[in-house]
Simulated scan of single mutants.
Amino acid sequence: MATILYARVSTSEQTLSHQQTQAEAAGFTFDHVLADHGVSGVAVKMKDRPEGRRLFDMLRPGDTLVVRWVDRLGRNYEDVTDTIREFMRRGVTIRTIINGMVFDGQAKDPMSAAVRDALVGFMAAMAQAQAEATKEAQKAGIAAAKAKGGEEGGVYRGRKPSFTADQVAAVRDLLGKGLGVAEVSRSTGLSRQTIYRIKDDPAGASKALEVWA
C-alpha cells in the first residue's frame, strides 16, 4: 500500500515544494510525489493531464492519495466528483491536508454514504465557484486597468513578462529538439510554469515582449 501526494501547480505563486512541505508538516510521508505544472483545473480534466493519467495508472486498492485540498484535483465540479468516486470505487482513500478531510469507500449504510457524497459534491462545487469568482475578478481588474490606460493615453500591457526574447527562442529550440519541460527549465533558468506558457502560446509570449519593449 502506497501513499501518494498529488499536486497541481497552476500559477507562478504556487509551488510543489510548498504543497509538499505543508503535507509533511501535517505528518504525511510519501512513496511517490506527482505534480502537474501550469495546468488549468477548470479546462483540463484529471485524466488529460500527464501526471493525472499516471496517477490513474498507479493507484491500487489500499493506497492513500494526499492532496492539499480538493481544488488540486481540479476546479470542474463534474470532473472532481467523478475522479473522487472513481478512486473510492478502487479502494483508494483520499485525504486533504487542509481541514483533514477523509474520503473512502468504507461507508456501508446508505445514510453515511449519502453524507459523504454530499460533502464531496459540496467541496467540488466550492472549488469551481472559487475559480469562477477569481476569473470574474481578474476580468474586472483588467477592464479597470484598460479604462485607466485609456484615460491616461496609455495602453494596457498586462503582466510584465518574466522572460526575454532570447529565452523564448531558447525554449522553443530546446522543445523542438525533444527536451522535456524540466530539462528546458534547468537549461534556461525559467520556471516550469513559464515554459508551459511559452510552449502553449508562443505567439502570446512574443506579443507580450513586443508590448513591453
Rank of each mutant, 00 (worst) to 15 (best):
T15F: 09
A133T: 14
E13K: 12
S12A: 08
A133K: 10
A124N: 06
G62A: 03
D48P: 11
M101E: 14
F122R: 03
D71M: 14
K135S: 14
G52R: 12
I84Y: 04
R89K: 13
L34Y: 13
V115C: 01
Q20E: 14
R75H: 05
R89Y: 03
S40F: 04
G52Y: 15
Y77W: 11
R72L: 06
E24W: 10
E86R: 04
T134I: 14
P61I: 01
R49K: 12
V67M: 08
M88L: 13
V80Y: 03
L34P: 00
V80M: 08
E132H: 08
F87C: 07
V102W: 03
V92R: 09
I97K: 05
Q106E: 14
A137C: 04
K135D: 15
R72P: 04
G27M: 03
V66A: 00
I98Y: 04
V120P: 06
V80Q: 01
F87A: 06
Q14K: 06
Q20G: 09
Q19C: 11
R85V: 07
E151V: 09
R49Q: 09
L59A: 00
G105K: 08
G52L: 10
A113T: 11
E86H: 09
G150E: 13
G38S: 07
V39F: 13
E86F: 01
F122W: 04
V42P: 07
T81M: 09
T11I: 11
R60I: 03
G27C: 00
W69L: 13
T21P: 01
G74H: 13
G150D: 12
D71K: 01
K146N: 04
A35G: 07
L65W: 05
D117G: 02
K47L: 10
G105W: 04
L65V: 01
D63W: 10
S17M: 02
T64M: 11
